[in-house]
Design a protein around this nucleic acid. Sequence first.
DNA 1: CGGATTTTTGAAAACCATCAACGCGGGTGG
DNA 2: CCACCCGCGTTGATGGTTTTCAAAAATCCG
Lengths: 253, 253
Amino acid sequence: MAPATARFRDSPLLPGNCNACPVRRFASYSAVPAGSLNFLQSARAGQRLLPPKRNIYREEMEADEVFTLYDGWAFTYKLLPDGRRQILEFLLPGSFIGLHVLWFKAMPHSVQSLTPVSLCIFDKEKFRDLLRRKPAYEWELLKYSASRQALADERLSDLGRRTAKERIARLALVLHDQLAHRGLVNGGSFPFHLRQEHIADALGLTKVHVSRTLQGLRHEGLLEINRQSARILDFRGLRELTDYSESPAQERV
Amino acid sequence: MAPATARFRDSPLLPGNCNACPVRRFASYSAVPAGSLNFLQSARAGQRLLPPKRNIYREEMEADEVFTLYDGWAFTYKLLPDGRRQILEFLLPGSFIGLHVLWFKAMPHSVQSLTPVSLCIFDKEKFRDLLRRKPAYEWELLKYSASRQALADERLSDLGRRTAKERIARLALVLHDQLAHRGLVNGGSFPFHLRQEHIADALGLTKVHVSRTLQGLRHEGLLEINRQSARILDFRGLRELTDYSESPAQERV
DNA sequence: CGGATTTTTGAAAACCATCAACGCGGGTGG
DNA sequence: CCACCCGCGTTGATGGTTTTCAAAAATCCG
């Protein structure tokens, strides 16, 4: 049998050098001057490669590591006792994972890989020290936390006050913009690693209804999502359907 | 005509002295040693009293002040172009208001007073300086932000995956616990300043349905909410209905 | 007391969920 | 190389939760 890592051809090995890190500009510490990255480096406890559907954290459990998502997609979620699942957030490369473990014993949500994933690992205590000794990192993390909160605000409005069609259209636009920012969009189409069930669990719908709604959007020539990729067919149409502003609030600095 | 402040008999004047501040233990900087509160003091730009239904921030607008809610209730919300409203969070005394303005030009949501409210005002630039010069404050604010995020996670699960009855019951339990923490609960009953429409807009329902669901909960002897106060009638019943854990995640340190 | 706000009630319809079955495609093993 | 299986998406029929619209009753406030 092939070594476990053989399954991860798409997950390049981490450079082990924060200065050279290609996802640094999407990370929370993107504004920290490259010169002081050796402090970050010293908190690094290595890397980890995971296949899809593996838990990085589990709700209610304690943890002693925090992470930066180096490559691949993941998501945070909560499970109800009867099996209902709510996906809270999709995580793309550069995402900081585990803010909570810096203070709290029990994780408020689980985190799971969606694709093969590579993680940059930091020891919890060392990361705490880093933040306390280098306030520039702390400052950036606080800003990062504020910007994620703005995204959460929008998602909450989606679930509370928008129709299935609007929710799905907006999710596509958000992912589009986040991937465009990383240079991964090509003429409106971009890699898309969610199953319809993920869309359903993120947007408070059933997978059956997601399937039907997706077909509606396709037939109206607005949006096309299949197994591997998504494509925005009609930006204008989607924008007026969804009241989606071009520059999301959390990026208007 | 009486001076504007005459309407606010219930809003005691602020002490103007952070050491003596009675809401300090609920505020983000609760763990900052009392000795270094003079730094906080120096960033203070005074106080402000507002009647109910006044906006503290408005979505999309720029601001140059941040606040601590000293007394009264408020809430954050977003408005859709067609008038639909989503309430994101209810704010109780001690809440820090305006994290976003420290970095971003456009507020991601509006904030409005629910009752007469008194605010502790900080100049944005001075508060930024405070955070940068006194990392203890920054650290506490980051922790505070993480704990609010855990609350947002629960609310998102409510909207995405729970029924109207579960949502309302959980909202009551959350407010109960927050007020109990402040010593404002008396035998299961506590002050309650939301109209049914606020509950509806917070939980993604219509006010008509909230009215009907509230009657259901009352008839089942679980929960009673009227204009001034709420009362938990059956903790056990509510807990098993809602899967609500006694110590919410954000407080399990 | 009078006007505005809030809550309640009723009937009908919309949106989405549920249940169940079928189809499609990619990977695996024979 | 083909058959099979499994994960995923599709389709249809039906039902339930919640919405919408409209109006009346109750409460608050000046």
